[in-house]
Design a binder for these strands. Structure first.
Length: 306
DNA sequence: CGAGCGCCTCACTTCATTCG
DNA sequence: CGAATGAAGTGAGGCGCTCG
């Protein structure tokens, strides 16, 4: 039996015999004698929460997921509520609820203190945009001039607007039961997740869809996958570029078009879409082993007699 | 048994791309 | 411009096989 060589594989092996508390688990995984509880908690979340094979139990212990679907309801914070879709969507893609999110911010790093200045959520269902929510947000900090130049959002515009904490319930309501979708989803996810956690103690959870990744798989001929290029490819006009509502609606329309392309290729359910997105993109180049195999190919298996 | 070789996996690095 | 992320390249090391 081979030894697991990655930290997550080591965690999986340890959890095979049953659930463990974060301190015990992370001490074993990291091969250290002791860890502070909060440090172990953060390490476990960082290491395991993105892997569907792990779940965090209400008791705070970590365990192996019974099924892949159950992992999407994983709770990643102690004693806090999760939002987002409660489980992996099933059935036809037409029945899946997508919440296409776009945020404008004061910078690029929520950890460094950058905040949301505007958020828009376009809800998509049945191949159509069914609702759009847009709200300017008081970031409670100055907006750098180059950001105002880019987004045309000034301090005067947001000064009298609600803070994110005040609009958080409305955001939660619109994200619940939906697949969090965005162009370069990790960016918007980070900001919304950080603001919800900081504001009302909610942790963002559930399925997530990145339309950049979708474009990489479905539109390999497109030289760049920026929102400008993708929307231009589909002939979608962005009413107000670099404003949350304009970008969210345009992204939602691009999503609908890409879902149709996916459907034409036989991708008609959320699990099928996840499988499609897990396949290597066309741009993937050959590994060293691949190159060697190409240089000295084996005969096709049908023709090869040992 | 040990050297040599080829194959494979994994960790790390580099680069491209996205966002504001 | 900077931050973050993912894809791809690279090299080290493990493993199994063959042969002397």
């Amino acid at each position: 039996m081979s030894r697991p060589t990655t930290l997550s594989a080591r965690a999986a092996q340890r959890l095979a015999s049953g659930p463990l508390d974060p301190v015990t688990l992370m001490c074993d995984v990291c091969k250290v004698d002791r860890l502070q509880a909060d440090a172990a908690e953060r390490m476990a979340v960082a290491l395991l929460s993105s892997h569907p094979e792990f779940v965090r139990l209400p008791s705070g212990h970590w365990a192996l997921a019974a099924t892949p679907a159950s992992a999407s309801a994983v709770s990643t914070g102690p004693g806090r509520d999760d939002i987002g879709s409660e489980s992996a969507p099933s059935g036809s893609l037409l029945d899946v609820n997508f919440a296409v999110v776009d945020v404008e911010t004061t910078g690029t790093s929520p950890i460094a203190g950058d905040k949301i200045t505007e958020i828009a959520i376009a809800q998509v269902r049945g191949g159509a945009v069914v609702d759009v929510y847009a709200q300017l947000v008081n970031p409670q900090r100055p907006i750098p001039p180059y950001i105002t130049q880019l987004t045309r959002i000034s301090w005067e515009m947001v000064r009298d607007q609600p803070t994110f904490r005040e609009i958080a319930p409305a955001v939660v309501e619109r994200l619940a039961g939906h697949v969090f979708t965005a162009h370069n989803a990790a960016f918007d996810w980070r900001f919304v997740g950080e603001e919800l956690d900081r504001g009302i103690g909610h942790l963002l959870a559930g399925p997530k869809l990145c339309t950049v990744r979708l474009a990489r798989v479905l539109l390999p001929s497109l030289p760049r996958k920026s929102l400008d290029h993708v929307t231009r490819y589909f002939g979608i006009e962005i009413e107000a570029r670099h404003r949350a509502e304009g970008d969210a609606v345009a992204t939602a329309q691009a999503l609908v078009r890409m879902l149709r392309i996916a459907a034409d290729e036989g991708v008609d359910s959320w699990p099928a879409l996840e499988r499609l997105l897990s396949t290597p993109t066309a741009k993937r180049r050959l590994t060293a082993s691949d190159r060697r195999r190409r240089a000295f190919p084996l005969p096709a298996s049908e023709d090869y007699i040992a």
